[in-house]
Amino acid sequence: MALSVRYWGTRGSIPTPTPDMARYGGNTSCVELTLSDGSQMILDAGTGIRGVGLAATGQTTPVHVLLTHLHLDHIQGLMFFAPLFAPGRDVRIYGPPALGAPLLNRLGRYISAPLAPVEIHELPAEVTFEEASDGGWDVGPARVQAAFVNHRGPTLGYRITDGDATVAYLPDHEPALGQRLDGASGEWISGHGLAKDADLLIHDAQYSDSEYSQHVGWGHSGIADTIAFARLTGARRLALFHHDPLHDDAALDALGEEAAAAAGDQFEEIALAREQQTATLAT
């Protein structure tokens, strides 16, 4: 029995469909989890989700889509996600609560004229929109927990536990904003509870450390802070995620080497996530 992970989009901010970005991938955030009972869960709906939908053509099982937040690089693919256009298909979309409007209405600002050719109420699938609750919920054999984390606008991180395997997903996260992580207690670090002792932590690492100094407060992390956060949470494996659109493959190779050198043997594995890469966790 296993929980498997496939990266369909690892890029942050905007798609980068150019040859020099192809190895790490140009699609924006999307990660597919296949739970131990075969249930499908999709983390974020960046442009990568288009591939998930095309690969699952003909399936009829429920699809669970967990959105961390509604920035365009995390929802842009929804309009091109085939299950939403399959009549009667059970698609459950979860996202952050926010003051002022329910999730349906906020997503409807994108899936509506003039930005889209269809209205959100016209989607042929049986779509439900649920705001993530504090207490968590079950999807098949997995327990999902969500909590707000430090990013611009209402943004969730997720913790998914299936048997003995735990994946933490915090693709847009700046836990070091306004504080030094070293010396801070976990209680006072954004996202700490979600990531604690995770078998796999998928975490924002958009910037090199020198770039981060120019982007403090933008809601993303530099490599050193990501490594510090992962170490403080006790994560076993660290996947660096949400690659900057200005970083081509060569730049990401260099960043990966820098991260591996800085991390030493603190983790069982540290690597930059690549599109179509898979990982398997025993449950």
Binding site: A147, F148, G178, Q179, G193
Partner: peptide
């Protein structure tokens, strides 16, 4: 238990004023 992110941000702000 991790504190609510609003409290974490508030603490970081208040530490600096």
């Amino acid at each position: 238990m991790t504190q609510a992110v609003e409290l974490i941000l508030a603490r970081n702000l208040l530490s600096a004023v």
